[in-house]
Design a protein around this nucleic acid. Structure first.
Lengths: 158, 158
DNA sequence: CGTGAAATCACGTTCGC
DNA sequence: GCGAACGTGATTTCACG
């Protein structure tokens, strides 16, 4: 379907992962191409949804989010999964939700204001149908936290 | 130190979290202000490092990253921590590393190509000084994965 | 597909309020 | 601190290779 990407595309993607607001003429200089060419490549990368979005990343510690936690949730009965996923979407303090192998059926990444709001969020989650138990690991410090994929190792997206 | 943010700043931040390349005139329209005012506010938000960076988000599934996993690592002896953190920085497939409460001393979020590269990464990590054991939870599906902070609940960053 | 030139639009600065 | 106007530079469009 989508054709492969060349080295130039990868360089552009690599740079945009770090500098999401990088200008087209800067990119053009880096890849030794004209501005319209870079523009066209970016348009295609966005159109193909290889780039799904651009985001400003905020410093969570500077806002009121003192607690980051990973919560393992056990959802019993797969008939309860769809409703569970729906309810997760309504909780903005839940940044991530993945179903996983191993103990627990889902892992959540949570950012919330304090122990109080954390406790309230947990009781809300535990009140949902099928949620039998949860285990929380609260983050003490973060040493690395990026969304940057090491695409130098990749060749052809599908 | 840093004064509080008003509703306008929060609206700008909220929008930039979703649209990292949003233009100043678009933002100006949303918040009913002039372009220079918005420009000035963005400059200050960046200067204060409330916005730490802008990033393009790529679709991991469309590249060659078939495996996402959360790995709990037990690092024995806090004298081994600094070296551990250093080595983590050198592993681009490790997207996140947090020290945590509960079992294991650190949790890692990993994205890698396949079971083969995953196994290799794990043995590399387990070979580091102080790393006694690890437990992996491989992601089956992801239902939510964002970096967006629910800053509507926040008022004053420090 | 890539380039170069022209038109359009966004951006940063300066000014007056 | 905000809004208006100017000058600069970035982005888009188009004709052409």
């Amino acid at each position: 379907m989508g054709k492969g990407l060349d080295e130039t595309d990868l360089t552009i993607l690599k740079h945009l992962q770090k500098e999401g607001r990088a200008q087209r003429n800067q990119l053009a200089e880096i890849v030794h191409l004209s501005v319209p060419s870079v523009s066209e490549r970016m348009r295609k990368l966005e159109e193909k949804e290889l780039i799904t979005e651009y985001r400003a990343i905020l410093d969570a510690k500077r806002f009121k989010f003192d607690i980051t936690a990973f919560v393992f949730v056990e959802v019993d009965g797969s008939e309860n999964y769809p409703r569970f996923i729906e309810q997760i979407q309504q909780e903005p303090e839940v940044l991530e939700c993945h179903s996983i192998t191993g103990d627990g059926s889902h892992i959540l990444k949570i950012r919330t204001e304090n122990t109080d709001s954390f406790e309230k969020l947990l009781s809300r989650i535990q009140s949902w149908d099928g949620v039998s138990k949860s285990r929380s690991n609260v983050v003490l410090s973060s040493f690395k936290e990026t969304t940057e994929l090491p695409i130098e190792k990749t060749i052809d997206p599908k």
